[in-house]
Nucleic acid binder design. Structure first.
Length: 428
RNA sequence: GGAGGAAUACCCAAGUGGUUGAAGGGUCCGGUCUUGAAAACCGGUAGGUCAGGAAACUGGCGCCAGGGUUCGAAUCCCUGUUCCUCCGCCA
């Protein structure tokens, strides 16, 4: 959500931005907002003066009553009634305009950073940098479920019976590896100065509406029947949501937070659960980073955040690259974002394992999160990024650490969490 | 799950239908005192948000949220949320 003042003062900037995102159908919204805003303000000005008159007259009634001037009081009452009549329609119009403006403001995209590459869709995203050599071994890398099967580490059949498609049981060392990766990720971020959180895994509807668009909500969120509660799709929801309607003292900034949570996603819509195995599932776990900072610092934090993820994967010997989201593929709330992608030696290409976003002040504006500064209150910037999200990450892990003899190497940093094991040996 | 109580501004807090234009503190700024600071004392203005205005300023809204009663609601009524205390249950 952008500042409506920007539309009032520089509508052409907003339109230019919409064009850059190839959402020309939204251009008309800018003019509509401009017009409705004019009408709204006129209605509000008129309404305010009428309401002022009601207040003044009502006060007079009190005085008349005290002085025993019954007739004057009655006359004034009639006058107030008259004004209220007039106000009735005006207030309906005011409210309607306000809502119409808001629904449009909600879908007008945030102003993208000038460095964002222009492009229509994800095919025009731009590779920024590679980290580590993308190795293609001279032995065959099987599909990840087949590798995991050699360790008897996955039970999809039972999960299908208990919960349906998109769920899984992890078993034995593979389950332990999953937990180890998260524990290592937690410690990795704590060592980099982030404060560790375990947030609520369910949140209220008003928080959900603040952190995502209606469409996203429909496609992602599981609702608890009979309660105003939703299962979170990422801990970003509860971690940013915890600041809803809060006024944060300036000296508290920046908040550099890292949180663990399970994530629940319906995955309705374009993709669905089409990829076999652990790639796209209804339930996964994630170590996340969330930053709330001064507006002028968000660019600096953006670079710190994605680098953390790159460093994390590199310590596990997984080659990665950063892929910058082009203008057309960038979600409407975001100023700039990039994916961290891991190398898949089986597919001989990179695939997404994390996503780093700078939302500017759009999320803060939507959730009414403000900073109490010396010269007044203002909106902070918010950012978020994935540290690691298994089990998808396990795909990259197994493919990259599989040896020619069928064992899987456990990289140094994970060994303490794996009881000192240096490799996994196939059980069948 | 049951029974009570509470929610007022950045914080504390007064306020049971009409000079409340939300008192009073604290925070903040200035002064006295002090080598400096703290404490104490004296003085001061601003409070959130929207609209109008070049500005000074003016007005609306705002007392957990949403409805309602009334000429007029922080105050009365209804619904919901959160927190606290006690009881019950439970990892």
């Amino acid at each position: 959500m952008i500042d409506i003042k920007l539309i009032r003062e520089n509508p052409e900037i907003v339109k230019e931005n919409i064009k850059k995102k190839f959402q020309d159908e939204k251009l008309v919204l800018v003019d509509e907002v401009l017009q409705m805003d004019k009408e709204y303000r006129a209605a509000k000005t008129k309404g305010d003066s009428l309401r002022g008159e009601v207040n003044k007259t009502s006060k007079q009634i009190g005085m008349f009553m005290r002085e025993g001037k019954k007739e004057d009081a009655e006359k004034a009452k009639a006058r107030v009634k008259e004004i209220n009549q007039e106000l009735q329609d005006l207030e309906v119009a005011e409210q309607k305009l306000e809502e119409e403006i808001k629904t449009r403001m909600m879908v007008i995209p945030n102003i993208i950073d000038p460095t964002v590459p222009i492009g229509k869709d994800d095919s025009e995203n731009v590779e920024i940098e590679k980290f580590g050599e993308p190795i293609i071994p001279d032995y065959e890398i099987p599909y990840h479920t087949d590798i995991i099967a050699t360790f008897d580490g996955l039970d999809l059949d039972s999960a299908g019976r208990t919960s349906g498609n998109g769920f899984y049981y992890l078993k034995g060392d593979v389950a332990r590896l999953h937990s180890s990766i998260l524990a290592y990720a937690r410690d990795f971020m704590i060592n980099r100065g982030f404060t560790y959180f375990i947030p609520p895994f369910m949140i209220h509807g008003d928080v959900v509406k603040g952190v995502m668009s209606f469409k996203e909500m429909e496609n992602m969120m599981y609702k608890i029947e009979g309660e105003d509660l939703y299962l979170i799709g990422t801990s970003e929801h509860s971690m940013v949501g915890r600041f809803i309607n809060q006024l944060i003292p300036q000296k508290e900034l920046p908040y550099a937070l890292t949180s663990y949570s399970p994530c629940f996603r319906k995955e309705v819509g374009a993709h669905g659960i089409e990829e076999r195995g652990l790639y796209r599932v209804h339930q996964f776990e994630k170590q996340e980073m969330v930053v709330v900072c001064e507006p002028e610092d968000s660019k600096k934090w953006y670079d710190i955040l994605w680098k953390n993820t790159v460093d994390f994967f590199r310590t596990l010997d997984i080659p990665v690259r950063t892929l910058e989201c082009c203008s057309g593929d960038l979600a409407d709330l975001k100023v700039k974002s990039c994916d961290v992608e891991a190398w898949s030696p089986r597919q001989k290409k990179y695939f997404e394992v994390g996503s780093c976003s700078n939302l500017g002040d759009a999320q803060a504006r939507r959730l009414n999160i403000r900073i109490r500064g010396e010269k007044g209150n203002y909106f902070p910037h918010t950012l978020n990024n994935t540290v690691v999200a298994p089990p998808r990450m396990l795909i990259a892990f197994f493919e990259n650490n599989l040896q020619a003899d069928g064992t899987v190497k456990i990289p140094e940093p994970l060994r303490p969490y794996m009881g000192g094991q240096e490799k996994l040996v196939p059980t069948k």
